[in-house]
Design a protein around this nucleic acid. Sequence first.
DNA 1: TATACCGCGTT
DNA 2: GACGTACGCGGTATAG
Length: 579
Amino acid sequence: MRKLVYDLETTSLNVHKAIILGIAICFGVGVAVYIAFPNDSKKVEQILSELKPFFEDETIEKVGHNLKYDNQVLKRYGINVKGRLHDTMVMSYVTAPNRESHGLKHLSKVLLNYQQIEFDDIAVGKTKKSKTLEGIDPNIVKNYACEDVDQTLQVFNNLLPQIKDNSLSKVYDLDCDLVPTITDMEFTGVKIDSDKLSVIESEIDTELSIIKASIDQIVGGEINLNSQPQLNKLLFDKFNLEPIGDKGISGYWSVSASVLKRLLPQHSIIKPILDYKGLIKVKTTFIKALKKVNPVTGRLHASINQCITETGRLSCSKPNLQNIPSRTVGKRLRECFVASGDNHTLIGVDYSNIELRIMAIISQDPIMVNAYRNKEDLHTLTASKALQIDRSMVDKQLRNVGKLINFGLIYGMTAKGLQQSLYQNAGKEYSIEQCQSFINSYFELYQGVAKCREELIYKATVNGYTETLFGRKRPLQHINSNDSFKREGAKRLALNTPIQGSASDIIKMAMVNIHNRITKEGLQSKMLLQVHDELLFDVPNNELKYMETLIKYEMENAVHLPIALEVDLQTGETWADVH
DNA sequence: TATACCGCGTT
DNA sequence: GACGTACGCGGTATAG
């Protein structure tokens, strides 16, 4: 099999503006070819069109570092890279998700003991952020680019045996298959209704100034509500409120929302402060984020990161679209995520209770498995058993308590954690003892889960890592620590990571299969976002019915497990309509 | 200007 | 003494 190892040097990390300065290519273990492109888009296009057949040859394996980036640049020049992909960043990630860096230079240093030329040493620019290779002597760029290609191939050869020896091939292949999917998602971006965004912003501005005025009046002067020291002075010195909770490392009392809520009865200023904090967060974080629309494409292109989390989940940044409000005051912002045109519709699909189902599958707990097979309501069942009441007595509120206990299980709950969760999310005040008894009753009901937890912890203790259903491994350095706090933390991860990570593996499989079908069948539909157990699509209306069936099928059948997976699918004009 | 800490949005 | 997973990112405070 022939291998094409390649690396591009561009003037900007923003792929929609990227101008190629250099490209180094090496066919297998051979001679590196370096081509310097002048800052001349015609010339770039001409040379790239000559290289196109190699990139698009299905029989040539491709090796690169962070190919999501390079392939996106190539895509912009009309090249759709085909053939088996190998990505050394992904290799680093699956072999050691906790590695301090997955950067090529770091890998080269720690795996091959080679010190590469640093970008900062050859690039020019005033600040670290604005450094660029533009205008640099082509010979210098050449050495830099060729070194990257050389080291990429060496890192590849170094890590490939590790993947095979540690049975990581399955998740490695999965993550490689996902690269083109994510490349396309980033490239596509999402359409934002900027007019609606402006309307929402001005409404929030108005409300903010009203609240701010009333606060200033009560205070009798200006105060910065974002400042913990200033709020401490105001509340605990000037107004003499009784502090709740504890001081942080900084020496100030916490003034977080949960603390402020408990201070509500003490002073009339607390309510407007809470309102202000909620709104200012929406303005400074989320509205600001949605304004980062790319002027060239007119769409919002976030970074979807594949090699960050230790569980195998994706993350999202610049901006983070995985934490746009869905329940709190800013949830209206989801109305600004719209279909790409008049004849397009959004489809939102989420797995229902995927993590709990995986818990049932991993543990093979008979009560839990039966509940799912018989389509019983697990939250109600949990509530009745944990609270030791008859099932007919479980109302909506108590069902919610059951739900929170079920969630607590996944996170490795302690009595204290459960107490806080029940107070914050359900407004229920239980004693530590009561919460401990809930947990005890819980594990009495789900004995298979209790046993499974012990086994997972034992396995982690022996192996030094925990793993997902599909073999993705997460090292747990502290699992045998003498420090009980660290050790207990690692024990929670020994349970949580298989659940969270397996769910993530499954949605990744679904994403790959859906993307493959869209590509192979020549469909115009686009996958836009992934939010851990949820996918968002933009589809032309003439594909709507077909895509609904396709997506539902591929998500529910991504993998066949002892308990069936179910998804909820919705269609609509905006993200708010489909969630 | 860079870093630490706090706080908070999602799952 | 900490006491629920996984993140990204905004702000202030502080040190350089």
